[in-house]
Design a protein around this nucleic acid. Structure first.
Lengths: 154, 154
DNA sequence: GTGATTGCAAATTTTTTGCAAGATA
DNA sequence: TATCTTGCAAAAAATTTGCAATCAC
């Protein structure tokens, strides 16, 4: 499906901490059984926006004694599978996950080890138009990842 | 340095297998002592364009019995430090390295585990112009990474 | 010769796996 | 209850480290 036929819908959803019932609903809508582990992990992901498995582990391990990394990876994978999360690229050999809300780009500074969302509907629109009109030989485009590298001014 | 002041120079260099003397010259120009390991690894990188440490190991281990992964990582790091290579983002928790020749984008298919260069001067030009005119608050832009996700048609 | 680089082996870090026990719909 | 999910412990995969031996200039 080229972008032309399936335009990207830009929905600005504020990331906010969701309550348990709300999350259970989201899980249900995505055909996932709602387990306490999934609820907690989704809650953390929606608070953090993006995180690696061990960041999540760091956030939870005290509140949720029994939860192991294996479960975290399981849960994250199940979320990716149904589209709740996206895998994020990283340049430090760790896998990051992103709350999948809307198309956005990222600002990244390797030296400062900072990574933030960058919201630019105009840019997204421009790219959408560009790739809508362009045919890529031998490649079926499903999305674009844009990362702006540089460094954060204080 | 905003892009406006430091326009991107697009130099299309064909990746080609370089001979040993040529590579020794390149290393010298970058203030790196020229060791056989560095020469071989640079040769492979310029053949492959992008690769992970173990892809390199796979290519060399028979010809170069004594070379170990530790050395490969050392050499790759030294190349990155002087700008001969760039670290590439990946979404499979492996670090990839890229021969740093010109600004280009990448096509990536996670399901097919394929990753190829995508050369699109028009796109680069468009982005250059866009970010040249745009001020990012609190962020000093030094470059953009673009990855087109999708899948390769046979 | 001197300082940088390599090889080695072991340690760390990150992610995955297999399977029994437990929870969910 | 039937199936999916979790916890656990161990394995695998990727990268890093420390140090002695070697090499490049």
């Amino acid at each position: 499906m080229p972008w032309k036929e399936k335009p990207i819908i830009i929905i600005i959803k504020k990331l906010m901490i969701k309550d348990v019932e709300q999350i259970r609903g989201i899980l249900k809508n995505h055909n996932l059984k709602s387990t306490p582990q999934r609820v907690v992990i989704y809650q953390i992901m929606s608070k953090l926006g993006h995180a690696s498995a061990d960041m999540i582990y760091g956030e939870i391990s005290d509140q949720f004694q029994s939860l192991t990394v294996a479960t975290i990876y399981n849960v994250l994978d199940s979320f990716v599978e149904v589209g709740l999360l996206k895998r994020r690229l990283s340049s430090n050999n760790k896998m990051y996950f992103d709350v999948n809300t809307y198309n956005h780009c990222h600002l990244y500074s390797q030296s400062q080890e900072r990574y933030t969302d960058y919201d630019d509907p105009q840019l997204i629109g421009m790219l959408e138009q560009y790739f809508g009109n362009k045919k890529l030989k031998n490649f079926e485009l499903s999305g674009v990842e844009i990362q702006l590298n540089g460094h954060f001014k204080k």
